[in-house]
């Protein structure tokens, strides 16, 4: 069985700061990390390998050369093989072009039985690439997995789907996206790190290698574009009220009264 986990290197959005003058992101000094949900997807793949035995876990990313560092981290965590789709022509891709590129890379490293993705990435928060890869490949998708039971031939998934929990099963090959509730990702071990740096490495895939249609990749293949960005205007009056508990409590009551929100009975 061959499982491929898609991985995105993302800026740690908790550390992102905004240049208030220009309204742009300050990326300098912001650490690049493995997208958190992708780490859970990798963990799910490693668990399936431990359960079923004869399973190869491959990690795949699209990004600039430095995204290779994140794939190295995945190898240290226990992935068997790593591919990075890396080409200037891939740059500027929206989700449609990204999914197409990753799907073509998956065709290159086929046969693949199960594709696991994080539900969404913390920089874009779109949750679109997983389902779009599945459609490109014409295989079933099951999203927001909280439990995965895989066998050689099929996969059964329990998902938290808003107001309901669902159980969905599909024959392989299939694609499953996972959320954070599914597991607790393991830590790297010295043994894992040593093995990764000794025996493994990241293999690059260019646009030539994966035989893409140039009209479908990168900026050219992206139907959407960013018209403008701006910093959300969250500022309000900002009045500060000081005093003891009674004074402050009365102040809040006045506000409630003014807004006609104080319950009468």
């Amino acid at each position: 069985m061959h499982i491929v986990v898609t991985i995105k290197q993302v800026p740690d959005t908790n550390e992102v700061r905004i240049d208030k003058k220009t309204g742009t992101l300050i990326r300098e000094g912001v650490p690049a990390i493995m997208n958190p949900e992708d780490k859970h997807a990798l963990e799910a793949a490693l668990c399936i390998r431990e359960e079923l035995g004869d399973v190869k876990v491959t990690v795949l990313s699209m990004g600039p050369p430095q995204a290779g560092n994140t794939l190295m981290e995945a190898l240290c965590l226990g992935a068997d093989e790593a591919f990075l789709a890396c080409d200037k022509a891939f740059a500027g891709a929206d989700t449609l072009a990204t999914a197409y590129t990753l799907a073509m890379a998956l065709k290159k490293i086929a046969p693949v039985d199960l594709v696991l993705c994080g539900s969404q990435a913390i920089d874009g928060d779109t949750a679109q690439v997983g389902p779009q890869i599945a459609e490109c490949l014409g295989i079933p998708q099951i999203t927001y997995a909280e439990r995965i039971k895989a066998s050689e031939k099929s996969v059964e998934v329990e998902s938290g789907f808003g107001a309901v929990r669902r159980r969905v099963s599909a024959d392989l090959p299939a694609l499953v996206t996972v959320g954070k509730a599914i597991n607790r990702p393991r830590y790297k071990t010295m043994k894992g790190i040593a093995a990764a740096f000794r025996d493994k490495g990241v293999q690059l895939l260019t646009s030539q290698d994966i035989k893409v249609n140039p009209g479908r990749i990168g900026l050219t293949g992206s139907p959407t574009s960013v018209k403008k960005t701006f910093v959300p205007e969250l500022g309000r009056a900002g009045r500060i009220i000081d005093g003891g508990p009674e004074t402050l409590s009365l102040g809040i009551i006045h506000t409630l009264e003014a807004e006609n929100l104080l319950p009468k009975s």
């Binding site: 959005t13 908790n14 905004i18 742009t24 992101l25 928060d125 960005t229 701006f230 959300p232």
Partner: peptide, 9 residues
């Protein structure tokens, strides 16, 4: 986007 740090149109 970026965790709500920025809005994009």
């Amino acid at each position: 986007a970026f965790g709500g740090n920025i809005m994009a149109t």
